[in-house]
Simulated assay, not measured.
Amino acid sequence: MRPNALDIANLAEGIEGFGESQRQAVESLVFRTVLHLLKLRCHPDQSARRGWQKEVDGFRDQLDVLFRDNPSLRAHRAAIAGET
């Protein structure tokens, strides 16, 4: 192998690992969003509502960034949400 040659197999593995990491981040954010939405709807302690809503808004913002930066994840978002 030449000194400046690309290690295609290693590069492909790195890209695949990055994609899996991003997918796991989406799964986590979807789970936390749903959990906080359930708290907002069902929990008797109404004093925590503002904090939960703020967190839901933040999770949604993070999801928007992940989907913007990883368009292939957007195409699979229903499947990802169904696995959480």
Rank of each mutant, 00 (worst) to 15 (best):
V26C: 03
L35V: 06
N10G: 12
S21Y: 09
E16K: 15
A9D: 12
L35K: 11
V34N: 05
F18D: 08
E20W: 07
V26H: 02
F31L: 07
E27M: 11
I15F: 08
L11M: 10
I15Y: 08
I15L: 12
G14S: 10
V26M: 01
E13H: 13
A9R: 14
N10I: 04
A12W: 05
F18V: 03
T33G: 04
H36N: 12
S28A: 09
I15N: 06
L29H: 04
D7A: 09
N10W: 09
Q24E: 13
G14Y: 05
L29P: 02
F18Y: 14
A9W: 05
A12F: 05
T33E: 04
Q24S: 09
V26D: 01
G17I: 07
E16V: 14
Q24F: 07
A25H: 05
E20T: 11
F31Y: 10
L35T: 05
A9V: 14
A9P: 03
L29Q: 03
L29V: 04
Q22T: 03
L29R: 04
V34F: 03
S21T: 11
L29S: 03
E27H: 03
R32W: 08
L11P: 00
E16Q: 15
R32E: 08
A12I: 08
L35C: 01
N10M: 12
A9Q: 12
A25S: 10
D7R: 11
N10L: 15
E13M: 14
E13A: 15
F18S: 09
E13W: 11
L11E: 12
R32Q: 10
V30T: 00
V30P: 00
H36Y: 10
L11I: 11
N10Q: 15
D7V: 05
E27W: 00
I15C: 06
E27C: 05
E27V: 06
R23Y: 02
I8G: 01
V30K: 02
I15E: 07
Q22G: 00
F31T: 03
G19F: 14
D7S: 07
E27T: 05
L35I: 04
H36Q: 06
H36I: 00
Q22Y: 01
F31I: 02
G19R: 15
E16R: 15
I15V: 14
R32M: 08
G14D: 06
G19Y: 14
G14I: 02
G14P: 01
E20Q: 14
V26E: 01
L35E: 08
I15D: 05
F18C: 04
G17Y: 11
G19S: 15
E16Y: 14
V26W: 02
G19P: 00
A12H: 08
L35A: 08
D7I: 05
R23T: 10
T33F: 01
A25T: 05
G19T: 13
D7W: 06
N10V: 09
G17Q: 15
A25F: 03
T33I: 01
F31N: 05
A12G: 00
V30C: 02
E13G: 10
S21N: 10
E20A: 13
E27P: 00
V34E: 06
T33Y: 01
Q24Y: 06
A12T: 12
A12D: 10
V30Y: 03
R23W: 03
I8S: 08
R32C: 02
A12P: 00
